[in-house]
Design a protein around this nucleic acid. Sequence first.
RNA 1: GCACCUAUAGCUCAGCUGGAUAGAGCAACGGACUUCUAAUCCGUGUGCCAGAGGUUCGACUCCUCUUAGGUGCACCA
Length: 566
Amino acid sequence: MIDFKEQVVKLIEGEVDSLTRDEINALIEIPPSYDMGDYAFPVFRLAKTFRKAPNIIAEDLASKFKQDEYFEKVENAGPYVNFFIDKKKLTQTVLEEILEEKDGFGSSTIGNGKKVIVEFSSPNIAKPFHIGHIRTTVIGNSLYKIYKFLGYDTIAINHLGDYGTQFGMLISAFKKWGDREVIEENPIKELLKLYVRFNSEAEEDESLRDEARYWFKELEDGNEEAKELWQWIRDISLKEFSKVYDMLGISFDSYAGESFYSDKMPAVIEEMEKKGILKDSEGASIVDLDQYGMPPALIKKSDGSTLYTTRDITAAIYRKNHYDFYKNIYVVASQQNLHFKAWMKVIELMGYDWAKDCIHVPFGMVSLEDGTLSTRKGRVVFLEDVLNTAIENTAKIIEDRNPNLPNKEEVAKQVGIGAIIFQELFNQRIKDYVFNWDRTLSFEGETGPYCQYTYARSNSLLEKGGFNIEDEYSIELLNSEDEINVIRLLYKFPNVVLEACEKNEPYLITRHIVEIAKSFNKFYSSTPIIIEDEDLKKARLKLVYATKTVIKNGLGLLGMEAPKKM
RNA sequence: GCACCUAUAGCUCAGCUGGAUAGAGCAACGGACUUCUAAUCCGUGUGCCAGAGGUUCGACUCCUCUUAGGUGCACCA
């Protein structure tokens, strides 16, 4: 595709010696509205070197670019030189590219040969998968897809919370009150009951905590009974989680969770000792991070057992050795900012320069209207319930508006779940939000269903209009404002994907798809497409095809499906 | 107490790494389906951009301070 911005840089570069190519590139901006041009170059920076008023400089500069093959118009508006892209060239380059690349439009090879690990979701075994887990799960999955789309060799890791003292509690509780059959029937719920009961009884009876610690130690030391129980709990929990993952269409390349690293930690601790960064403090082993303004990283407890810091460090080292990653990404809540900062510092202190390739991608908190989520206090919304409610809600809407739709259940799933995913990826990651059923189930305006609806509409047009991708078309027939506005947005899509990747921010893609859908719907309502005039019809259908292709690609990067009819 | 994050329209949020009149959706009101899917489209308003300084030709954007809210600060994860 033609890089028009690059052409602007070239033109200016030819006339201005005082700025480097990169400086020019950085100065170029996009005017507030299309009727001011597609690109603008503000000349303020040149005022001193040219010793002229900005307006004059802009005027002089603009006059030199009057004739250009890429821009139909270059003119100054005060201190700005505004560039208007040649619409025919734009249309041609965009449509050609999309028609050729199809579902690969926006993809790239920049990541070829580079491995990127995305760790996300990582629920705790034996605990419910609730609305609080949706963020890491959906954001992580989207990042995974984005990196993959850009050519990276991408690995999705579900770092299951399948180890730690809590397992001591579970084993202990199961041995006291557990019943395998009851648990098998409703694993998470029953295991949670045990966990809650154990915790409340432990408030009365301190010795229970010792018992839990004892069982965790047994587990770590390889006690057969403990291991068997642990394995069983892990299996049935994972089976439950898989239900949600299946609904969301998410899969992982690895489920190596905390337990996976348990036997790999001693060597890492030894390595730290050898490198002399480990210190004794109150019977525990720490890495002092005082000079970096951080509390110490606790590596080993005074009873000799390990902590999650130790596990994360061990996991990172393992991953470097095993995968030789280019980037190692952690999609984990912002509450853990300090934890990640600390253990990554430890990696650096161990002399690993790849510490900089470990990236924590934080996100804000989800809370409920009556406070923070709390499984034990019953303040919890199960993710499965949210998804199912969204599906039911969608089914009702379909029944109401399009009762003859074939495949109703399937579409209700795609749209209902899509709505949840879309909403999750609509804003910057860092924002906190309060979960609210009404908002979650609202399907009007800038929502997932809106984009999917637009996609379905365009498919229906292609079908009814007898679209054939081989048909010739005349690009100059696509010249209305509404048509060009759609094309401008399609043109930007690949850059949006790149930016979303650089910033690890899927919402940039979400927003861009909405923009495309909006401008397409405007075009749709203003312009008849299936018409007598065959040439015009063919040209417009090409645009429809291009749009639906880009929407589909975009939704795919968010982890959403796009039904052909809805 | 210290550190980090957030603050933009009634609500939920964008704002292209400092530029031209601060924008969307929702909500409210009014219009558009004998015509390609009305989950759509078109109109109508609203802002001391939390506050005060500073840097700059230019600040919602960068710096400092203040205020409000959130989060985190070693044997849980």
